[in-house]
Amino acid sequence: MLRFVEYPTPLELPLFGSPVEAGFPSPADDHIEGKLDLNEHLVRRPAATFFVRAAGESMRGAGIFDGDLLVIDRGITPQPDDIVIAVVHGELTVKRLQRVNGAWQLAAENPNFPTLPIRDDGCEIWGVVTHSIRRHCGR
């Protein structure tokens, strides 16, 4: 039966004891050690974790493409070089947080898009992007 997985339902996949190799399977593979839960891997703080959908082209250099699913952890304190969700003009926006010569800025990862300086009145960092998930098979 198909199993639809929705957070926080654990997605259980068997974890095998030996690395995958070509040829004959190891007899040790019969011994299942436990189950892998994808949530455990992607979500460290469930109460602080949110999912958003990335929209646009300005973060291609960081490997984030239009339609990717982003995992956001609001529990992490943002640091320079983190990819963050920042509030820009009242909208949630994906940027690279940078500190250049003591000044904070929000950089795009695409030469066609500008880098935004963070002015003295500050800027709200909504959360830190911890993972991006892209679908490679449309079926």
């Binding site: 959908r53 929209a55 300005s58 984030i64």
Partner: peptide, 8 residues
């Protein structure tokens, strides 16, 4: 329904 984050 998850929110969109702009990359523009």
């Amino acid at each position: 329904d998850i929110p969109a984050a702009k990359m523009g």
